[in-house]
């Protein structure tokens, strides 16, 4: 698994998300089309091309050619990359959530497998 030294800047991550969540290989114009549809970022073809080139340099994607168009394929899977960020994220989710404006379905912080086991037993016991 690739070691991530730094987190991706927001813009580059946006491009990566498009690549991850759409059929690949994918062309520059397809990426632009999807980003336009999302309507969050207003990027030109040139901007997107620059971002793609940076991602190639960082070895997140690779470039192939089909006819006149360049096509891009991810080299890094989404789950691999985001797990790099997950530590901080989950810490925030399960931190002091009263004041973090998060309503999680459950908060399993600091629970061991045995503790969960115990809970399950207790729950079963109580149904009787």
């Amino acid at each position: 698994m690739k070691q991530f030294e730094k987190r991706l800047p927001d813009a580059e991550l946006e491009i990566m998300k498009v690549i991850w969540h759409n059929p690949t290989p994918i062309s520059t114009s397809e990426v632009k089309h999807i980003i336009d549809e999302e309507g969050i970022n207003d990027w030109t073809q040139q901007t997107i091309q620059t971002l793609l080139n940076r991602l190639i340099a960082k070895e997140f994607i690779e470039k192939g050619k089909r006819g006149k168009e360049y096509l891009y394929t991810p080299l890094v899977s989404e789950s691999d990359y985001v797990s790099y960020e997950s530590k901080v994220f989950l810490k925030k989710v399960h931190g002091n959530s009263v004041t973090s404006f998060i309503r999680a379905l459950f908060n399993g912080k600091n629970m061991s497998a045995e503790e969960i086991e115990k809970l399950e037993e207790m729950f079963r016991e109580m149904q009787k």
Binding site: L90, K91, F106, G108, N110, M111, E115, L119
Partner: peptide, 18 residues
């Protein structure tokens, strides 16, 4: 559970709430 083996102690564990 596997996802959060990193989490160190917090003041109140989630167990009480669960």
């Amino acid at each position: 559970n596997q996802k959060k083996s990193y989490l160190t102690t917090t003041f109140f564990g989630g167990e009480q709430a669960m």
